Computed example of a mutant assay.
Amino acid sequence: MSEQFPDSVKRVAAPLAAAGHADAPVWLDSAARTSQQAADALGVEVGQIAKSVIFRRRSDDAAVLVVTSGDRRVDEKKVAARVGAVGRADADFVKAKTGFAIGGVSPVAHATPPVTLVDRELFRFARIWAAAGHPNAVFPLAPGDLERLTGAPVADVTASPA
């Protein structure tokens, strides 16, 4: 782990290492704020990018994290059926609840633990890539590792592909 990494990336690396995860975060030459940018930078399919989508649960203002495949769109109705009514989260809410800026929200090491769901569509791939606390930082893992690291259920949370 490079001492040069921002604190937000170090915050992600620590629980990965503590859980025995074999791969530390890596730094990309350019920011990858979208799934397509991340896929292009890594030379992988956009579906292999585990994008973190944050919603605001209406009943208690909790952050709801949906980790979904980069080539899929989250179906808010499916999420709501599992966790209660949700609404969009703005950048300030995301930063306050997760400790990360949009474009770098990791599935682990949140400032306040979110309600988390893992998209079953990620299991189409043996290896996926998730944000590591900064738009330039990512880490590889298997979908099962994501389930284990977050303790989250795997769910059908996406709209049918067009």
Rank of each mutant, 00 (worst) to 15 (best):
A18K: 14
E76T: 13
A96C: 11
V64A: 03
H21Q: 04
D75V: 00
G103W: 08
G20A: 10
A159I: 00
E121Y: 04
V44P: 07
Q36V: 14
A41P: 04
H21D: 02
D23G: 13
P107W: 06
G47Q: 00
F100G: 14
S160L: 06
W129T: 01
G151Y: 04
A63W: 03
P161K: 02
A13M: 10
S160K: 10
F123R: 13
A159N: 01
K97T: 15
Q48T: 06
L16W: 10
D60C: 09
L65V: 05
T112L: 13
A24H: 12
A17D: 10
S69M: 02
P15N: 08
E76C: 07
L28S: 09
Q4W: 03
A50K: 05
F93S: 09
G70R: 03
W27C: 15
L16P: 13
L65H: 07
V86A: 00
R33K: 15
F55H: 01
D119Y: 02
K77C: 01
V12Y: 12
V44W: 06
A41W: 02
D40P: 01
R127E: 14
V64H: 04
I102V: 15
A131C: 15
D156H: 08
P161V: 00
G144T: 13
S35N: 05
V79Q: 04
A24E: 15
V26Y: 08
A41F: 03
G20M: 10
V86R: 00
R148W: 11
D156P: 06
D29Y: 06
D90T: 06
W129V: 04
P15K: 10
V105N: 10
F125Q: 07
D7P: 09
A162R: 09
A159P: 01
V9I: 12
Q48E: 04
A80G: 03
R33P: 09
A18H: 08
G104P: 15
A31G: 10
V105Q: 12
A101C: 12
V79R: 03
A132T: 11
F123I: 08
V46M: 00
K51T: 00
V86Y: 00
I49E: 01
L122P: 04
T34F: 03
Q36D: 14
E45L: 15
R148P: 11
G43R: 01
E3T: 12
D119P: 05
P135N: 11
P107C: 10
A126P: 15
A142M: 12
V46S: 01
S8D: 07
A13R: 14
T34R: 06
V66K: 00
V105A: 12
A81Q: 02
L42S: 04
S8I: 07
R82C: 03
I102E: 13
A39N: 00
V66H: 02
V118H: 06
G87A: 07
A80H: 04
L122C: 05
R11A: 15
F5E: 14
L122R: 06
K10A: 09
V12E: 10
G103Q: 09
L122K: 05
V108N: 14
R120F: 05
D156G: 06
A89E: 04
D71G: 07
V108I: 15
G87I: 04
A39H: 02
F123A: 12
A19L: 11
W27P: 10
V157K: 02
D156M: 05
F5P: 11
T150H: 08
L146P: 15
T116L: 01
W129N: 01
R127V: 14
A81I: 00
S106M: 12
A89L: 05
P15S: 09
A24Q: 15
L122N: 02
